[in-house]
């Protein structure tokens, strides 16, 4: 396949940045999207040009490190991570626009890499849960109803990639936060600090400069892990309960 790529280039956080156009020939439909960029980078290296910076780590769809806004969709046209997206999702001769996540809370570091440490601080603000340390407890000592366990597991699949923020017209991180809140809130271990956790995480979210949610739903459509919108309702409910309890 032959492709035309419009890629955002920016030397560092202070640079204004601009779109640059590249041609790639010889792309195999079996390549992953990141392998396609690797090939382009080898090409740039050979020509003594600065390679394009982009994030990746596991390349297995489980770590949340890869990103990229591909033709206006986070992680591209399929419901998966960019590392698991394959070039067979595109056609020979296509033009592909590649941009970094755009959010004030995710400043661009270089090219397509953004700083997502705001997510780390939201998690950090959530704080600890009260569990006994030491030897592992007997698994049956704390019964968890099946449906609660399933919901907690499903939302715990959030990999913190930030696609929800990238897609959201308000630049809100509500889907991410909702996933984390629901994950612990469904389990007995998450109960003692439930009110303070949601209060602190939401305050940190607002402090980082993420926008407020208006329930548009582009986040859930973009999420590679299919985190459903109901976690945002859960987040809102937990915050409302915290207010009732005087937080």
């Amino acid at each position: 396949m032959k492709l035309t790529l419009n890629i955002w280039r920016q030397t560092d956080a202070n640079d204004a940045g601009a779109m640059h156009t590249y041609q790639v020939d010889d792309v195999s439909p079996d390549m992953s999207f990141l392998e396609m960029l690797d090939v382009l980078n080898e090409d740039l290296n050979a020509k003594d040009e600065e390679p394009i910076a982009f994030d990746s780590d596991c390349r297995e769809g489980i770590c949340g490190m890869c990103s990229l806004m591909i033709n206006g969709e986070p992680h591209g046209p399929e419901v998966t991570t960019t590392c698991q997206l394959h070039m067979r999702s595109f056609k020979d001769g296509d033009t592909i626009t590649i941009e970094p996540w755009r959010a004030s809370a995710f400043p661009v570091l270089k090219d397509l890499c953004v700083d997502r440490s705001a997510f780390d601080r939201i998690i950090q603000a959530g704080g600890y849960i009260s569990v006994n340390t030491g030897s592992a407890p007997e698994a049956h000592s704390v019964p968890v109803p099946r449906d609660d366990a399933m919901r907690a597991f499903n939302v715990a699949t959030c990999i913190g990639c930030g696609a929800c923020v990238a897609a959201c017209p308000n630049g809100s991180a509500s889907l991410f936060m909702g996933a984390k809140i629901t994950h612990l809130g469904e389990l007995p271990q998450g109960q003692p600090e439930r009110d303070s956790r949601v209060t602190n995480m939401v305050a940190q979210h607002d402090h980082e400069g993420f926008g407020g949610c208006t329930n548009i739903g582009e986040c859930a459509a973009a999420c590679p892990k299919e985190i459903p919108l109901d976690v945002i309702s859960q987040l809102n409910k937990d915050l409302r309960t915290a207010i009732k309890h005087g937080h």
Binding site: V202, G212, C213, N236, I243
Partner: peptide
């Protein structure tokens, strides 16, 4: 943090 000062 105060829950009543949030966007939510």
């Amino acid at each position: 943090a105060r829950a009543t000062q949030s966007t939510i």
